[in-house]
C-alpha cells in the first residue's frame, strides 16, 4: 500500500513538473534574471550560422539572436548559443533548453500547431530550386524530363521534387546523397544533370564552383520555404518580444535607421514612427516589458535588416544572394512589417 502511494506521488510530481514545462510563462523574467539569452542555432550553414577565426558564432540567423539579446538585456553578447541539429531543435525548444530558435526553420502548419511552437515571423523567404550546366541547353526546370537529379535524402526537398515532376508529367532519375557537401561534389563530378536544394543554398553552391558562369540556376522555385525564428507556445509576452525585434529590424530598414545613425536618431526626430520605435515618444518598450530604448539596442547590435542581409548573405558576399522576395514591399519584395503605433 505504501509503495503504491509512493509511486502515485512520484507520478504526480512528474506530471506537475511536466505541466510546469509546458505552461511555464515568464521567459522574459527567466532571461533577465539569468542575464543571458539561450539561442538555438544551426550546426553550421554558410552565411546563416558559422564561426569566424576566433570561434565566435556569426551569420544571418545569429545576428537575429544578438538583436534579441540586445533588446532584452542591453548587451548583444549576452548570449549562450546552443547548437542544434535538425532533429534536436524542436525538443530543445519544447523542453525549455533554449529561449528562442533561429535556425532557418520552415514555417509549416504542423510545426506551428502540432509541435506547440509559435513562429514569430519570417526572416528569409526561401524556396526550392534547381541548378544545372549551361551546356545542358535547358533554360527552364520544366524542360528537365529524363534528367538525373542530385538530392539530399531525408529532407522535404525530396518530396517537393517528386511532386514537381509528377504534376508536370515528367520522368527523373534521383541520385540520393547524404549531405549537402557530398551532393555538391557529386554534381560537380557530373554524376547528375541538375542539383536541387533551397535557392539560398543553390546560390552559395554556385559561388563555390571554379567556373560559376558555366552553371545556371533555373527560374522556377518549386516550393515555399518561409524561414523564421520561433518560440514556445504559451508565453505570449515573450513571443511578442521576439516578433517585434524582427519587425523593428525590418521597419528600421524602411525608415532608414541604421547601425550608424540609430544613436543620433534616438535623441528625437521629426518622424513620429522613428520616435515611437526608438523610444523618444510613447511607451512602447513598457508595453513589451522592456526598456524604452530596446529597439535602439537591437538595431545597434548588427544594424537593420538590409545591413544584416548585405553583411552575411548579400550580393557582395561569397553567397551573393539577391534580395528577391526578401526585399521590402516598396522595393518589389514581400517583406512587410506591421507599423509601430
Amino acid at each position: 500500500m505504501r509503495t503504491t502511494n509512493w509511486a502515485k506521488g512520484a507520478v504526480m510530481a512528474l506530471a506537475i513538473a511536466m505541466a510546469g514545462v509546458s505552461a511555464h510563462a515568464g521567459t522574459l523574467e527567466d532571461v533577465q534574471s539569468a542575464g543571458v539569452l539561450k539561442c538555438g542555432i544551426n550546426t553550421g550553414l554558410a552565411g546563416f550560422a558559422y564561426t569566424d577565426d576566433m570561434g565566435t558564432w556569426t551569420g544571418f540567423d545569429v545576428a537575429y539572436c544578438r538583436a534579441v539579446a540586445a533588446a532584452v538585456l542591453g548587451d548583444p553578447d549576452a548570449i549562450e548559443f546552443v547548437v542544434l541539429t535538425g532533429k534536436t531543435r524542436f525538443p530543445a525548444l519544447q523542453a525549455g533548453e533554449i529561449d528562442v530558435l533561429a535556425r532557418n526553420t520552415t514555417w509549416t502548419l504542423s510545426r506551428d500547431v502540432d509541435l506547440g511552437l509559435t513562429f514569430v515571423g519570417v526572416n528569409y523567404y526561401d524556396g526550392q530550386g534547381f541548378i544545372g550546366r549551361k551546356a545542358l541547353g535547358v533554360m527552364s526546370a520544366t524542360e528537365l524530363d529524363g534528367a538525373s537529379v542530385c538530392i539530399q535524402t531525408g529532407t522535404t526537398t525530396e518530396l517537393n521534387l517528386a511532386d514537381f515532376f509528377r504534376t508536370n508529367n515528367m520522368e527523373y532519375e534521383p541520385v540520393p546523397i547524404e549531405t549537402n557537401a557530398e551532393a555538391r561534389a557529386a554534381y560537380e563530378a557530373d554524376r547528375c544533370d541538375v542539383y536541387t536544394t533551397d535557392a539560398s543554398g543553390l546560390a552559395a553552391t554556385k559561388a563555390t564552383f571554379d567556373d560559376p558562369d558555366a552553371h545556371i540556376v533555373y527560374p522556377e522555385v518549386i516550393s515555399k520555404e518561409p524561414l523564421g525564428p520561433l518560440v514556445r507556445h504559451g508565453d505570449d509576452q515573450w513571443a511578442d518580444i521576439a516578433r517585434w525585434v524582427l519587425n523593428a529590424l525590418i521597419i528600421a530598414e524602411e525608415l532608414g535607421v541604421t547601425q550608424g545613425n540609430v544613436e543620433r536618431l534616438a535623441g528625437g526626430t521629426d518622424h513620429p514612427e522613428i520616435n515611437r520605435m526608438l523610444g523618444s515618444e510613447g511607451s512602447y518598450g513598457e508595453m513589451l516589458g522592456l526598456a524604452s530604448d530596446w529597439a535602439v539596442h537591437a538595431i545597434k547590435a548588427e544594424g537593420n535588416y538590409a545591413e544584416i542581409f548585405d553583411r552575411y548573405i548579400g550580393p557582395d558576399t561569397r553567397l551573393g544572394l539577391q534580395r528577391g522576395l526578401n526585399a521590402l514591399y516598396k522595393d518589389g519584395g514581400i517583406l512587410y512589417a506591421p507599423p509601430f503605433r
Binding site: 564561426t51 564552383f209 561569397r318
Partner: peptide
Amino acid sequence: LLQTNPDWIG
C-alpha cells in the same frame, strides 16, 4: 563547420 564558412566554402 569550417566547410560552411563563407571564406572557405567549397
